[in-house]
Design a protein around this nucleic acid. Sequence first.
DNA 1: CATAACATACCAGTTGGACGGTTTCGTCAA
DNA 2: TTGACGAAACCGTCCAACTGGTATGTTATG
Lengths: 187, 187
Amino acid sequence: MSTAHHRKKQPLFVRQQLLEVAARLASEKGMTAVTLDAVSGASGVSKGGLLHHFPSKNMLLEALFDSLLERLDAAIEEAMRADPLPHGRFTRAYLHACLALRDQPQGTKDWAQVTMVLLTEPQLRQRWHAWVRERSEEYVGTDSSVDAAIVRLAADGIWLADLLGSHDLDESARQRLIDRLIELTRL
Amino acid sequence: MSTAHHRKKQPLFVRQQLLEVAARLASEKGMTAVTLDAVSGASGVSKGGLLHHFPSKNMLLEALFDSLLERLDAAIEEAMRADPLPHGRFTRAYLHACLALRDQPQGTKDWAQVTMVLLTEPQLRQRWHAWVRERSEEYVGTDSSVDAAIVRLAADGIWLADLLGSHDLDESARQRLIDRLIELTRL
DNA sequence: CATAACATACCAGTTGGACGGTTTCGTCAA
DNA sequence: TTGACGAAACCGTCCAACTGGTATGTTATG
């Protein structure tokens, strides 16, 4: 009966907003704080409305995780388009995507933290495995060298350090590290 | 009135067991499955008994995280004692501790997953920060080089890959990577 | 006017935790 | 040696708040 009932209906916008709210809750207050009540409350959407978009809590979490993977894919594809050299292209793009989150404005750090939170949920970890397997098969021709694997490993380490805030590297050292990693993808 | 009431009192053992059960629940079913009821039920200790050892759920989680950090400290110290060269000694020990979990028997993989699960809880992330800061200050004389930082970063990456099961490195490649990392700690 | 996009009301089960009871243990005087 | 006694280590119950989810509306949109 109240406010949101009379406003213009924007299903895609509302759906998007619900995912963002869920992401913010997860990163700020941990996984246990992501409840249907909390999400619906913080987004100004009723619980019924929330359950209309996502039939169950699992569906909500899976949709959230999928949207994060889509963003990752988009960032990687964009970086790959700007890279003329085929060999190691995917690995460089992956590295770039991992590095990017540190320099992005506010929301993107949450993004990474949510990814990690979601990875702790065993069911969603399978989705991540599938993603990794797909990519490693797709780019087996150009990114299957040992060095490339090492670079991707290091990128994960940087990703982890960035989102945990364990910054003990200064800018110049970080830049030297990145240069070296990119060099490794070309070998 | 029933069973456990009459058995011999073993406060330290019970406390230890409660932490192990909580760890197992967290790694197998995710953070949302770690409830007081679940922990007390799976450990054969009443909820009252559980709340006697850990006055609140937060206290339980913090104690669990602390015990994990203690294990990490113990593994690192052991590795450091076996290392005669001071320069980079802590970093090598840290690397060794990160690598060790893959080769350990069953329970230890859970250990790492729990660490990650707990790291998603914002309050516990601060504890991790404190741990990192302490160590980086303690070993500033021997492990503050850029290369050492890089090695620790890569160790985190390996740690993450191991516990997520994203194994795309074969044994020989892994060994070459490790050798290279150890070499870097000596520069 | 049919359907999608919401809202409101309600439910049964679960949650963290408070509370008061019972049993064991350490210790120290007699 | 004993035995009293306070503290620590448990147990079982109860509860208010919250949980995910259902069922049934009401409103907007094509």
